[in-house]
């Protein structure tokens, strides 16, 4: 092998080594690198019970109730749902049917939240188009 080919092999090994190391690292992290748990995985007992965790899903339409700053609503992944209790200001994008991520813990089957974040999806459109789409669905 020439010196140049030698260096090529070295660079290739470098890249292969980096990929291998990171793949193993990500495998080891597993579920921990997920930002939130779905209601189904919480029901299956995958979420921690001894500390707070994040729960993500869609706000069930018609479930939102509010008294002053205290609000309750249901979050679902279309299979299972949890009732959330939260005291505080909700983000601009919060609305029924919207995806949200909330931090808190389960107390007697109810999720007591300390933070509610609204998730935005990848669809960007002007209000008129959104209205037209809605009408078409109905």
């Amino acid at each position: 092998m020439t010196k140049r080919q030698n260096r090529m092999v070295l660079v290739a090994l470098l890249i292969a080594g980096a990929i291998l190391a990171v793949t193993l690292l990500l495998q080891a992290l597993g579920n921990n690198s997920n930002y939130f748990y779905s209601p189904t995985s919480v029901k299956q007992g995958k979420a921690p019970t001894d500390r707070s965790f994040r729960l993500g899903g869609l706000v069930v339409v018609g479930s939102f109730k509010r008294e002053d700053l205290k609000s309750t609503f249901d979050v679902t992944d279309n299979n299972n749902k949890f009732t959330i209790e939260y005291t505080g200001i909700l983000p601009d994008l919060f609305r029924e049917g919207q995806g949200i991520i909330t931090t808190g813990s389960l107390v007697n089957g109810r999720f007591i939240a300390t933070e509610v974040l609204a998730k935005h999806d990848e669809n960007y459109m002007p209000p008129e188009v959104a209205d037209a789409l809605k009408q078409a669905q109905e």
Binding site: L90, P91, L93, E115, L117, A118, K119, H120
Partner: peptide
């Protein structure tokens, strides 16, 4: 303004 947090 959108999510409700500066950083996650």
């Amino acid at each position: 303004p959108m999510w409700g947090t500066w950083w996650a």
